[in-house]
């Protein structure tokens, strides 16, 4: 593969990877909105608000931690790849 082609290919892949990692945050935001809606409903109907709030307080940090771990790995691995690529480029020049 030519260098320019390779770069184009890798850039395209990187865009798709970024989108896929964004999806976990979409899931997290979706769950936050869903849980907020349910808590709102329980307050509106005077329906055991305490339980609803405590369940959401347990569930949300789990999803947040998972999304953060995944993002941490994604950024960590790509940072290193970029370093390697710029090093390779420097050696070629």
């Amino acid at each position: 593969m030519k260098n320019s082609n390779k770069k184009y290919f890798l850039n395209k892949i990187f865009i798709f990877q970024t989108i896929s990692v964004t999806l976990i945050w979409v899931l997290f935001i979706g769950i936050v909105l869903w849980v907020s809606n349910l808590v709102h409903l329980s307050i509106f109907w005077h329906d055991q608000r305490g339980i609803s709030i405590s369940i959401s307080l347990v569930a949300l940090p789990i999803f947040f931690t998972l999304a953060s771990v995944l993002t941490y790995v994604f950024i960590g691995l790509h940072k290193e790849e970029k370093k390697l690529m710029s090093k390779e480029k420097g050696e070629e020049e």
Binding site: I13, F14, F16, Q17, S20, Y72, V73, F74, G76, L77, H78, E80, E81, L84
Partner: peptide, 15 residues
């Protein structure tokens, strides 16, 4: 796409 730019470097291993 799935390998996330893995090159087996010590820093990547640590992450």
């Amino acid at each position: 796409f799935l390998s996330w730019g893995w090159h087996d470097t010590p820093r990547q291993k640590k992450v």
